[in-house]
Design a protein around this nucleic acid. Sequence first.
DNA 1: TAACTTATCGACCAGGGTGGTCAATTTTAT
DNA 2: ATAAAATTGACCACCCTGGTCGATAAGTTA
Lengths: 216, 216
Amino acid sequence: MSETFERLPEDKQAKVLDAAFVEFCEKGYEQASTNQIAKEAGIGKGTLFYYFKSKQTLFHYLVEKAFDIAQEEYLDKINFEETDFFERIKQTTELKWAVYHIHSHALKFLAYVFMHADETVLSVELNEKRKIAEKKWATVLTYNIDFSKLREDIPQETSLNFIRWTVEGYRQELEAQMKQLNFETMNNEDMRPYFDEFYGYLETLKKIYYKKEEEE
Amino acid sequence: MSETFERLPEDKQAKVLDAAFVEFCEKGYEQASTNQIAKEAGIGKGTLFYYFKSKQTLFHYLVEKAFDIAQEEYLDKINFEETDFFERIKQTTELKWAVYHIHSHALKFLAYVFMHADETVLSVELNEKRKIAEKKWATVLTYNIDFSKLREDIPQETSLNFIRWTVEGYRQELEAQMKQLNFETMNNEDMRPYFDEFYGYLETLKKIYYKKEEEE
DNA sequence: TAACTTATCGACCAGGGTGGTCAATTTTAT
DNA sequence: ATAAAATTGACCACCCTGGTCGATAAGTTA
């Protein structure tokens, strides 16, 4: 399926995929326009339907592609040997930023699929894939983590939630700020202050939620 | 403007407004369909345009209405005499839940307007109103608050952010859960366990971020 | 070069939805 | 009974939809 499309040079593939990712994210499956996708991708409408025989086929291909990216560029790269909770957070967050910087459209699309999983009609196999991925994502911050370092006067699960919510809240606020500036064109040096702020926050969280040293 | 509409019995007004709130939220201004709004509101399309002379007029009316609801049902009811940070959080959260339960569509619409403020074309006066509201909302958790009770080994602003992010994270997770169940029809008794969980979390946060008593 | 395959295009299709109008009708008030 | 106000949906001209297809263009092979 889509052999012709996959024989294309990668940059041209990416242009089409990105155009489609964006369009489906913004408008949803039904309202998304294949005309708009073709135009944005810089190809004729006939060509789009030559690559993918229908709107649905294209959509399914996108889902598959987005899953693959998340798997290969994110999940597979996590070092699950690291047992320290905050180290894991640091790693996964850095990883997420890196992937986001290159594949932001794909990741936003993936988020859309997960959020609208009930309304988007997926094939049975894709739905299976989705469920498996969902489970895997849930373990990212828990698998092989040493929770014994957490303070004991607060239920472990509560600490975990609080930390997760704090980090996620910071991420969201950062994202909102980034939306103003043009995030895509920022290089690593521009990101430095934000990284540093994040590391500072992590240290503070450690101070809050880990046992005090003198108690160990 | 819209005198005819405002002479309608309130429940009929509400039906029209809710239909419009939902449609604009889901599809955005351009894609929203006046046909769909009329159908969902149970009125003829001609009637809709008899009430509001155009799609834009309707949209502006909605924005105004949503602002008014937020102002009267939420902002005006906050007790700014209360200086304890966590009491303020508790109050505003309870208030938010109460308003949300009655005016969920209006509030979601308001959130939409704030989020897409750059793309939605508002009149100059409405934009002014938006900016003022934005400022007022920002002070909800800071105005006349006694911050001296916060622990001193963490920068005040950091503590504030962490608490805000934690509460907001909990709220979001709750909202996602509620989406599964039918939130609209839940009575106060059904909400009890969630309220209790929330109060428990607040106590924990107090333990974390306030000075230890023996230090006072 | 000629023959053949593969890739690309956009005009075109039938169908449906768009915001908005309006003459006809019903409801309400006098 | 009469006038005024409220309500309706068929209708308008227009735009866009997913998808097709014959006409080219580009690439490959001999």
